[in-house]
Design a protein around this nucleic acid. Structure first.
Lengths: 155, 155
DNA sequence: CTTAATGCAAACTTTTTGCACATCA
DNA sequence: TGATGTGCAAAAAGTTTGCATTAAG
């Protein structure tokens, strides 16, 4: 708990520094929305974030959530991660340097992984086409062991 | 032209077989929408597809486009490829077995590539977590050589 | 105090649905 | 002919914007 808090403070600080740097204000709703986002694990939809924020302060409006998510993204604390079904979700970035996703198309389970071999190959692709890398996303889709078992049982 | 037509007939056939297999009907709007989609290169938005279909038959409604795109996807002839900005686009699949994308975040240019080394590593990831692979998407984001040059010039 | 941010509601955008009519098998 | 599909328009979702009020610096 103490550790969690420490990480969160750190991110709150980063967010505040970011806002101050752009001459923007540090407001209660912004702090609440960031906190709601940081304290919830996984891939959150805008709706999830609104819901979490409302738990903390029911007066929060969704417009503010949308506006603040954009700020959190700009501050480099969140990344939009589009799901298979096209749903827009956001994931933490600061305490999650970089990873790719392996997801189960049946139950929606998400496993995060990092493959240095793949990262290296990606750099080769960038170099081959003369691109300056700025980022990448990779999603591997499949059936997790549990869902494979379930599938066999049912059919 | 003759070759194009041959490929297209082939895909139309596949689509018709798919529909027949599900007891669904092969209608003029469905043929027109598939044709509009197949004859336009690149990554199409739903709007693009509607526009192309309307060129061929102005009577086509957007609801039919949405309903038919889903069929085309289900038939395995198209894949949804979500763009950086969250826009929903579709790309051909049948004449385009598999590839990944390298895209320029400045001008939106898309380069398709295939890296056997990456494909092999991906299989290892699936195996490591016991997943049965069903697909994957990978997008590398960067600045293309032209936009790098432009950036230097301006700044 | 001054400027920016908020919450609400209305406006937009994109996608889906209901239904009377048309079309395919 | 009977079931399915179509186009239209209305409804739903999801997101953004305008504006009077509130709050931060």
């Amino acid at each position: 708990m103490i550790l969690d808090k420490a990480i969160e403070m750190n991110e709150l600080d980063r967010f505040e520094t970011f806002l101050r740097g752009r001459g923007q204000k540090i407001t209660k709703p912004r702090r609440i929305i960031l906190e709601a986002f940081l304290n919830t694990e996984g891939h959150l939809s805008t709706e999830d974030i609104l819901h979490e924020a409302k738990k903390r302060d029911p007066g929060i409006g969704q417009a503010t959530v949308f506006r603040t998510i954009r700020l959190i993204e700009d501050a480099g604390l969140a990344r939009e991660a589009v799901q298979e079904d096209g749903a827009r979700t956001f994931e933490h970035l600061a305490d999650h340097p970089h990873h790719d996703h392996l997801l189960c198309t049946a139950c929606g389970k998400v496993i995060e992984f990092l493959s240095p071999a793949i990262e290296k190959e990606q750099q080769k692709i960038f170099a081959k086409y003369g691109f300056k890398p700025t980022g990448h996303t990779m999603e591997l889709l499949g059936l997790c062991p549990e869902c494979q078992a379930k599938e066999k049982g049912v059919q």
